[in-house]
Design a binder for these strands. Sequence first.
DNA 1: TATTAATATAAGTCTTGGTTTATATGAATG
DNA 2: CATTCATATAAACCAAGACTTATATTAATA
Lengths: 114, 114
Amino acid sequence: MDEALRLQFLLQTLGDANRLRIIRFIGAGECSVGEIVSATGLSQPLVSHHLRVLRERQVLEPRRQGPFVLYAVKDPRLLDALGIFLQLTINVENKASRQPMFCCPPWWQRNKSK
Amino acid sequence: MDEALRLQFLLQTLGDANRLRIIRFIGAGECSVGEIVSATGLSQPLVSHHLRVLRERQVLEPRRQGPFVLYAVKDPRLLDALGIFLQLTINVENKASRQPMFCCPPWWQRNKSK
DNA sequence: TATTAATATAAGTCTTGGTTTATATGAATG
DNA sequence: CATTCATATAAACCAAGACTTATATTAATA
């Protein structure tokens, strides 16, 4: 699986407003399905559906505790990464406040594997 | 438009392998449509289609030069951000090498606007 | 101005995936 | 063991969007 496909996989997983709301809530701390349902206002089956997707794609991790199933974000770096993207959405036009805040080797220079 | 919707918009725009390949190539420097077609191996209409999406969503910026239309990445921070996400795709399992590399205010703490 | 090269658009097909409704599993409690 | 609460799954519907084929636009050149 090449870079573009791996990135597509992750970005598609995260590219849904409801899943983002779920991740945002879980990011504040491990919580149960019921709590997510209440917090988001989504139907219980819909939340379970999205949780399954996020679980299967290694974004979230479940843990059974009594009758509840608690979910947590697997890799905390993900939350930071989302924060960076969120900043990008703020001033798409406003070039004035454009400054490189995060320096890292540009991904497209590493190896052009198609 | 709330945070989740803005993020969804951006992530969906980027969540396509062909668009990522196009962005990766353009990221290396402003280039024409024809060059992108050759570099990616995609059909010309398909490239034009994706360029339109990326243009309309403020990711790329076109500039006419003679018979050519040159495209460039509008906000260079986007390339860094993609690099960060790419790193996240490397060791989804491998928790050993998990270390917070980018610190920024967790986006889900700023304001829980549903 | 007619032609060619470069790019854009339109229409049509087909797949992916988000959502709802209904039902199943699984653990706790009486 | 039966019932209830918490969560998961299944099926069906629907819309968004990626891709192809065909055609239109725009600029350079003869």
